[in-house]
Simulated assay, not measured.
Amino acid sequence: MHQHSADCHHPHTIATHTIDPQAKQTQLAIALLLIGGFAIAELIVGLTSDSLALIAEAGHMAADSVALLLALLATRLAQRPKRSLLSDSLTDIVATPLAPQPVAAWETWAALLNGLGLVAIALWIGWEALQRLQTPPETIASLPMLLTAGIGLAVNSANIALLHRGSDHDLNLRGAFLHVLADAISCIGVILAAIAVATLHWLWADGAISLFVAGIILIGAVPLVVQSFKRLAGEGGKE
Rank of each mutant, 00 (worst) to 15 (best):
L171D: 03
L90G: 13
T135E: 03
L147Q: 05
I216M: 15
L43N: 03
G237H: 13
P100I: 04
A53I: 10
M1V: 15
L77K: 04
E128D: 05
W202Q: 02
S210E: 00
T26H: 08
V225W: 06
I219R: 11
L34W: 08
N172H: 02
G236A: 14
T13K: 15
H164Q: 15
N156T: 14
N159H: 09
V222W: 03
N172W: 02
A74F: 04
N172Y: 01
L47G: 13
L113K: 07
L232E: 11
D7K: 14
T148S: 05
A208T: 09
Q227N: 13
D183F: 10
Q134D: 13
A58L: 06
A198V: 06
G166T: 02
A78V: 03
I185S: 13
L123E: 01
L90M: 14
S5T: 14
A149V: 10
A105R: 13
L34G: 02
T199Y: 13
V226L: 12
A110P: 01
L34P: 05
T75K: 01
D168T: 14
L143M: 14
L72T: 03
L211D: 00
I151M: 13
S157L: 10
G115D: 00
D170M: 07
G220K: 04
I191V: 15
P97V: 06
L72K: 02
L77C: 03
L147S: 03
D7A: 13
A129W: 01
I93H: 07
P144F: 11
S87F: 01
I219C: 04
D50Y: 14
L173R: 07
P21Y: 10
G150I: 09
C187M: 06
L43D: 05
P136C: 02
Q227P: 05
L116K: 02
G46A: 12
T13M: 15
F229V: 15
A193S: 09
A15G: 10
S186G: 14
A158L: 11
A29Y: 04
V103E: 03
H17T: 11
I30L: 11
A198R: 04
S51I: 08
A62L: 15
V213N: 02
L200C: 10
V155T: 12
